[in-house]
Every structure is written in structure tokens, then in C-alpha cells.
Design a protein around this nucleic acid. Structure first.
Lengths: 150, 150
DNA sequence: CTCAGTGCAAAGGATTTGCATGCCG
DNA sequence: CGGCATGCAAATCCTTTGCACTGAG
């Protein structure tokens, strides 16, 4: 689950390309963020980023993550606490879901089988037809207690 | 989907009982909140509550919803925007999921078939065994654009 | 050179808290 | 009566924004 499809180079190349398509530059700060997100196996809070890379300015991190999200390179994850979390866009990693600890707020990744994903996709298609809702992506999270908090 | 299992009386009785078990009173303000949540078919923001019932003090709404959540009567729903939303606990209504509009933030309810729910429950049990994560509940949301925003 | 990106500090906005008062038990 | 609930206003805290400076193209 920690392995990413494609080498780091591809990751940066893809990020650069998507940013360019969006009229944005791939600056060193943005590269640092991508490196950082590519090295973790869970969505990261802004606070974590600032701790891991104390040289980054808070406002730049907020702004750059917003730019990267806009360009479709990273994805904003909403857990249950008030902190925003970011991960690489799932087409740059692999499709997965989140285990959210309601006690400490930790977020971990997990996957379910492709069969189940398919069944869900079919169900979502039906819902879309019936309601007129145009689905962009789905969110399947388990909320509970992580091993540390049990 | 708008129908709730059990008459309103049961709802209040259950709410009162759960609060009592939690050492809390079922005050008139709390009753108003339950009435309001029972009357809608989607999770409600604090702002909506304050608009619908302008006589309620903002701080009391925040505090009472927290108390009600603690007692297991209401559930806090996290969408994609920064607003907290609340709905009745799903054992007081029926199990459902959310359509979240990433454009206007609207949240609507929908359900999937019991078969699929079962398959998911099985998958979650497996994940729990493998990771040691103790699941309290799951969250399955579709993020996209509602009919108004398409 | 030009203009987007950066960093610092100040502002914004949803949510929380302190405190005096009111009311249920 | 005692203690929790309430309401108002002030405080918090994550996040956003203003502004002057720096650096890439």
C-alpha cells in the first residue's frame, strides 16, 4: 500500500505537466510538497507539513496546496476534526479509502477488493441516474478507533 | 426516504432516554433541535438552524448539538466545506449516505441496496481484523455536482 | 524587466469559552 | 436551594489575505 505506481520522476513530471496545463509553475516549494506527500502513506495535515519542513512558510503551504489541488495533483481529505489533510490525487497513487480515528484524528489508508469497488460503482451510477447527481468521486471511510487509541 | 421509523413521540422519548443515560437533561432547546432535525431530509448546518429558529442562541445551539452528539442522539456530518452539519443518529432514522455538492455545498441523502451494504460490512470486518482498527461506523459519500449546479 | 511566487504579519470566520443570570429538579 | 442550561460577548484557532520583496523566464 506504500508503493506508488511510477517512479518519483514520473510523479514530478506529471505534477509539472498538470500545473503547466493549469497555467501554473512547478516551483521548488511545490516540488517539496509533492516529495513530502509522495513519501507518506496517509493524508498529511498542514501542521505536519510545517513540522516536517520548518523552512516552508505557512501561507505558502496553504496557497500551494490549493494550487496543486486546483491542478488535480493533490486531493484535500476531510476527516472528522477541523484540520485539512492532503494526499496525492488518487490517479497518481492507487485508489484507496481511509481509516479515521475519532479519538486522535489519525488517518490511515486501506483498500477493498476490486469486485466490491465495481459493485459500488454500479450502485453509484444508478443513484446518479435517479437523482441527476453528477458524481465526481466517492468517499468511503471507516470511523472508529486506531490501535493506539483502543 | 423522508419517512422516519417511529412516531415523533418515540423520537423524543428515545432522545430523552439517551440524554438521561448520559447524565443530561432533555431541555426545551434540545427538544427544538430534535424536532428540527426530525423534520428535514438532509444534514443541517448551524447557520440553517439559526435561520430556522432565530430565537435560539448560537452558543446554545453549538453546545446542545455537542451534548446530543455525545449522547448518541445526533450525528455530526462532515462535508467538504468548513461548515459542520448535523442529522439524527442513523439508528433513529434509517441507514443512508450523502450526495455532497462540491459547488454549492448542499448535502442530500441517498441509500444503496442492503446487499451492497452487507458486502461492505464484510469487507470492513476483514479490514478490522487485518489492521486492528475498531470500526464505529462507515461513511460513504458521493462528491460531485447537484442538479442545481450542473 | 515582468509577473508569479514567497514570507511575514494582520485579518477573517466558524466555533468555543467565560461569566452572570434563569430555571429545572 | 444547587447545579446545569442559557445568552451575550469576548476569545480561539485554523485558514485566508494584504503587501512588499525575491526570483524565474
Amino acid at each position: 500500500m506504500a508503493d506508488r505506481p511510477g517512479a518519483p520522476h514520473d510523479l514530478h513530471a506529471t505534477a509539472a505537466q498538470r500545473l503547466r496545463s493549469d497555467g501554473q509553475r512547478y516551483t521548488s516549494n511545490r516540488r517539496v510538497l509533492i516529495d513530502l506527500l509522495g513519501a507518506t502513506d496517509h493524508p498529511v495535515t498542514i501542521a505536519e507539513v510545517l513540522t516536517l519542513r520548518a523552512d516552508l512558510a505557512q501561507s505558502s503551504v496553504y496557497r500551494n496546496l490549493a494550487v496543486l489541488e486546483q491542478a488535480g495533483v493533490v486531493h484535500r481529505v476531510v476527516a472528522t476534526d477541523e484540520y485539512a489533510r492532503y494526499e496525492l490525487a488518487q490517479d497518481l497513487t492507487e485508489h484507496h479509502h481511509h481509516l479515521i480515528c475519532s479519538s486522535c484524528g489519525a488517518v490511515a489508508d486501506f483498500t477493498i477488493g476490486p469486485k466490491l469497488e465495481e459493485s459500488m460503482a454500479e450502485a453509484f451510477a444508478r443513484v446518479g441516474e435517479q437523482t441527476g447527481f453528477e458524481t465526481d468521486h466517492h468517499r468511503l471511510d471507516l470511523v472508529g478507533r486506531c490501535t493506539d487509541c483502543r
